[in-house]
Write a protein that binds this DNA or RNA. Structure first.
Lengths: 214, 214
DNA sequence: ATTGAACCCGACCGATCGGTCGGGTCCCGC
DNA sequence: GCGGGACCCGACCGATCGGTCGGGTTCAAT
């Protein structure tokens, strides 16, 4: 929201990354041709190779940039104080806001989960992305464990809970037409984003099933 | 698990579908070449077009077959009696078992969510798949609403809950290396599948946060 | 015995793929 | 004014893409 509003006055390097992010999110790694990307950016295809070694490295750079931004914001979120409940709920809110503000993120994250299984994986960008993911998972894992230790969270399997939390947040914003159809509205609509945060918070607080006795 | 063990004695039509399911799940629509597929099946590339009109229709057929199988099993699950809690938990268990038994399913389902946004979408297979999805969502939606009406479920936004449930179940089995890394084990390991079902059930029953007062 | 459908193939098509190459333009430090 | 790097381009490369075509084989129905 701060910059990036004017498409002009932006280095070719960043314009390529921006366009590639949109295209890769929409059609995936194999579904995007470099000639198409070059045309969108407004460059010759061969100029892309001046800024990036090859297609795979460009893809890794796109993913790494997103991961870096997410990590930066979520690390700052966790750094703020509060008990584990507050910190976890704030973490989730922040992540949802991030995914909602950038419609390409959720899709590209899930797609990269699918594709990095067989992509090379030895570029520094990929290792950086991997490090960012692992770090974030470790941080939230520690937060959850702390909450359990002090009795604020119910005892549960931390690893499965992490998978659950990621699926809960990322999936809806990547679900495209399906999500819109189930929801009846656009998931990226601000009102729906607010609702999503509230619903998720209530689920963690109360579950779904009503426990009458207590 | 019942049949399909011997790769021989199977019509070319089905062999193509089986191989395409694996390949599409692994690398996505654009990432799979028909020559590669033909080679896996053991046919000439041109023979594929005897069984399917083109690549898009083949992909739609693969997706429709999976959706049909899922729908059939889940409809049977919902048909069995029980109060909404029992029915919902059984539905989730059944879906998880299904995804766990067929490692290609979760990935291909998510991928098709991503890709059907811009694929033609007018073939009968696609419409059949779309109908199956809509029907299942409607069934579970009705079940949830019923549970809320009789006071067994907490009042919540049904549409968001549906998205949540799908993400909760499908995502982990599609998360590949990421899921395995977070979990420390293979998600398709039977013990881990059992644990997943239990954790999910407990989350719906109790939430995550401990409510001391009641 | 002939037909015709089901099935399969190799050869081929135009298009596009990721990527290379040589050269051009611009600008900045010397 | 003279490099030299940053930046960009068109032409081109071999490979592969999805798909077509004509013809071959098998087999059941006539």
């Amino acid at each position: 929201m701060k910059a990036a509003s004017s498409t002009a006055e932006q280095s070719s390097h960043d314009k390529i990354l921006d366009a590639a992010e949109i295209l890769f999110a929409k059609r995936g790694y194999a579904g995007v041709g470099l000639s198409e990307l070059a045309e969108v950016v407004g460059l010759g295809k061969s100029s892309l190779f001046h800024h990036f070694e090859n297609k795979a490295q460009l893809y890794a750079a796109v993913a790494a940039r997103i991961l870096g931004r997410i990590e930066e914001r979520l690390v700052r979120s966790l750094a703020k104080g509060g008990d584990p409940i507050v910190r976890l709920e704030r973490w989730l809110d922040e992540l949802i806001d991030l995914l909602a503000d950038h419609p390409t993120y959720a899709r590209l994250l899930l797609r990269s989960l699918f594709e990095d299984d067989d992509l090379p994986g030895d570029t520094p960008e990929e290792q950086e992305a991997h490090r960012a993911i692992a770090g974030m998972m470790a941080s939230v894992g520690a937060l959850v464990r702390e909450g359990m230790a002090v009795g604020l969270f119910r005892a549960a399997n931390v690893q499965h809970l992490l998978l659950t939390l990621v699926g809960l947040t990322v999936f809806p914003f990547a679900s495209g037409e399906f999500g819109a159809e189930v929801l009846g509205k656009d998931i990226f609509d601000p009102a729906e984003v607010r609702r999503r945060k509230r619903e998720l918070r209530d689920l963690l607080r109360f579950g779904l099933v009503v426990n009458k006795g207590r």
